[in-house]
């Protein structure tokens, strides 16, 4: 039973460290990135509206810019999803290493 407790405490410590590493600041970072995208899109719209009014660009340009911003929104979402997946991959790798290392260190004769 002592061996099990030792194994359990090693896994607990390793998993706790992995959780902190994988999730630390993630939500805050995603919120910040989303806000930055929205702020940039709002500034873009202001710029293009002024340019359209001044005749610097035409309606074709204006439409193309809006479509480009919509695609960039999709790219921002894909990047956020990719960052989450990469963090999950690292967490998974750490979890596997932790459990295997703890088992070997505790139970290997």
């Amino acid at each position: 039973m002592g061996q099990w407790d030792d194994f359990a405490s090693k896994v607990e410590a390793g998993v706790a460290a992995a959780c902190v590493g994988a999730l630390k600041g993630y939500v805050k970072e995603m919120q910040s990135d989303a806000q930055a995208f929205l702020a940039a899109a709002a500034a873009d719209l202001e710029t293009w509206t002024a340019q359209l009014a001044a005749g610097t660009i035409d309606s074709g340009d204006f439409t193309a810019y809006l479509k480009a911003d919509a695609s960039l929104a999709q790219m921002a979402a894909l990047t956020a999803a990719g960052i989450a997946a990469a963090d999950l991959q690292r967490f998974r790798d750490t979890l596997i290493d932790t459990v295997v290392s703890a088992a070997v260190a505790t139970f290997k004769p």
Binding site: D33, A40, A43, G82, I83, A86
Partner: peptide, 14 residues
């Protein structure tokens, strides 16, 4: 970010 956790730059302004 596939290599290590990294902050993305804020979008450039026009």
């Amino acid at each position: 970010n596939k290599q290590s956790s990294t902050s993305c730059p804020k979008p450039e302004t026009i």
